[in-house]
């Protein structure tokens, strides 16, 4: 367990301040968090609590003000970015699943998944092979040649999960991935995320408001006024 935790994501005393002087707002006030490979944790909190800010910091999209972030055994932030190329960091080490799938409308399902792999320099053939494996694992391989507009909402979300996994990143950030889905499909997506986390040894953080999926997490981080509080969840998805 100690080794697995080493390879997950660890956040210590992360702070983010917007603005300066009297108008400065502290969105994150010392967030601590740790997610192990194969683990899916929930990140919940009311609007304006700092969920999106935390997600953007974790996703290397905005720069925190202070703190430390470790991805696997690599320190990526320690009061300043330690990685020279944040774009490559996002591409190789972080997977994203969004509220809406945001698939590229002019690429078919296979190429939507394979594109990210191709961006790392892998050949088209190898990238498509990886994509097909994931589509099979996610049970959407029969729609491999379809365009995103031809898929149902649940199928689109499964394709976006495949895209997030294609470069085998150590962490996946999922922003409200079940928001547009009904209960049955939402639970199916969470079940898939859990399966994928275990299968690919990926740490997954799911930001959600969705009451119906909250009981599925074993561990939940509540974020309130820029600080996190860890809670043990019901973990129903695994039972």
């Amino acid at each position: 367990m100690a080794d697995r935790q080493k390879k997950g994501i660890r956040i210590e005393a992360l702070r983010k301040r917007y603005g300066k002087g009297d108008t400065a707002v502290d969105a994150l006030k010392g967030v601590d968090m740790q997610v192990a490979p194969g683990e899916v944790v929930g990140l919940i909190g009311p609007s304006g609590s700092g969920k999106s800010t935390l997600l953007k910091c974790l996703g290397a999209v905005i720069e925190p003000t202070a703190g430390r972030m470790t991805l696997g055994e690599e320190v990526i932030y320690d009061d300043g970015w330690k990685m020279p190329d944040l774009r490559a960091l996002r591409r190789d080490k972080i997977g994203f699943v969004f509220q809406a799938p945001y698939l590229i409308p002019f690429l078919d399902v296979t190429d939507n998944v394979a594109l990210l792999s191709m961006l790392t320099g892998r050949s088209n053939g190898e990238s498509r092979k990886r994509a097909m494996e994931l589509l099979e694992a996610l049970d959407v391989v029969h729609r491999a040649k379809a365009l995103p507009a031809q898929l149902s909402g649940g199928e689109q979300q499964r394709v976006s999960i495949a895209r997030a996994l294609v470069n085998r990143p150590p962490v996946i950030l999922a922003d409200e991935p079940t928001a547009p889905l009904d209960s049955e499909r939402a639970l199916a997506v969470i079940r898939i995320l859990n399966q994928m986390a275990l299968q690919y040894e990926t740490a997954i953080i799911v930001v959600t408001h969705d009451e119906k999926i909250i009981p599925t997490f074993k561990r939940i981080y509540h974020i309130r006024d820029g600080k996190t509080q860890e809670e043990t969840g019901e973990g129903r998805a695994f039972e």
Binding site: R87, R90, D92, F96, Y102, L116
Partner: peptide, 16 residues
């Protein structure tokens, strides 16, 4: 714009 934002987020280079 949304697709471009996604492409940039997932690591697509500006030159691409």
């Amino acid at each position: 714009i949304r697709e471009i934002a996604v492409l940039k987020l997932i690591g697509t280079r500006n030159r691409t």
